[in-house]
Design a protein around this nucleic acid. Sequence first.
DNA 1: GTGCAGGTGGTACCGAGGTACTACGGCCCT
DNA 2: AGGGCCGTAGTACCTCGGTACCACCTGCAC
Lengths: 222, 222
Amino acid sequence: MTTVLIVDDQPLQRYGFRMLLDSVPGTEVVGEAAHGAEAVRMAAQMRPDVVLMDVRMPGMDGIEATRRIVAAGDRSRVLVLTTFDIDEYVYAALRAGASGFLLKDARPEELLAGIRAVAAGDAVIAPTLTRRLLQEFARLVPPAADGSAQDSRLASLTEREREILVAIGKGWSNSEIAGHFVLAESTVKTHVGRVLSKIEARDRIQAVIFAYDHGLARPHAG
Amino acid sequence: MTTVLIVDDQPLQRYGFRMLLDSVPGTEVVGEAAHGAEAVRMAAQMRPDVVLMDVRMPGMDGIEATRRIVAAGDRSRVLVLTTFDIDEYVYAALRAGASGFLLKDARPEELLAGIRAVAAGDAVIAPTLTRRLLQEFARLVPPAADGSAQDSRLASLTEREREILVAIGKGWSNSEIAGHFVLAESTVKTHVGRVLSKIEARDRIQAVIFAYDHGLARPHAG
DNA sequence: GTGCAGGTGGTACCGAGGTACTACGGCCCT
DNA sequence: AGGGCCGTAGTACCTCGGTACCACCTGCAC
């Protein structure tokens, strides 16, 4: 039995979802919340398998509520619903830890399948959104992560020079690089100079940017 | 009628797919290819709606073939199939322009639904992979793109200082920044100095890295 | 062998970058 | 009227990075 918590500020919408879920065996609506704060409280109390979460709500919105429910770590998975496929919502929801993202105009079977998948630990995305998400994803994944065409400038570097470039990308000074590779600083300068000329960078700063753009350096924010 | 090209190096596998697709109305198998090069040639010739592409193949693999078919721009969409859910394949396939990614152990209905969705212009991903893809995606989307916790160091910057930091992140020199904002270079130095001290960076290089890590600068590789 | 590429090291020089101040006008808040 | 904060600008000084050379060694190819 999959337990579900319905979160939506519109009573009629909640009623519709409840009717749908009650009509099929295997799912049980264990509660309804009208806004984010109530959703967080009820989720903590009843620990439903799946939280059916509306994004647009007065007060605490669905994204923030999702973040808190996921952070609570009660194993509840959140399936976010929205009327329109507004991109920022999608990204924010996924970052918040949502397990799925569906449009409210989904067919009942799709919604039920989504709930089952989420309860099983899988993730679901509305097919319409998937395409855009994939495009965005492809844009984000750095070129170096696959076998696609490498920049000829990068290819012209020797093994050592690539190592030096990675070190530059980490923000290391010449003396730090010298220390790390056990080299004289003058040697490092020679290497750095060659790297800069090969990748057509005027300073090591441009080299750092080059390294990020080509996936040799990776963000590690947090 | 959805036209399909089957690409797989194993004859038996191709036979299975053909039997499945022939058994349902609405799809028509217009050809079979045993390796990447043949797939590219046949796709260009027959312009199928959907190419059912195996990843693992001798010679040109499915990824490279996908890249070329998509690059040809013949409106053929590629649905990639793999036996195992190996991550690099997924990312590489998506970057190559695949419209979907399914596992070979998918149920027939799933495969058919996938083909129909891809033909309709949507994208599909195996539910099992979706979860990991979403995690990866959430990791890649920079913190600045949603409303999550900002670095206090970033918050301590004034409006002007943030502008200066963005400029530093673009790799601009002090004099370039001065020119762009119509300032004296000495003023820029003052700002830069304050930015470095506030974000606890010893160099402008560390500042560039900080900018990338916090989403103030974005890669634009090509 | 001769020649070339890559890695290592050195010297000399100069300009950009960074630090450490000071200073002043415009705001807003009290 | 005074005190902050912010943006602007300046001077002085020193370090680091980058350039332009040259030199030597190793290994590999012809």
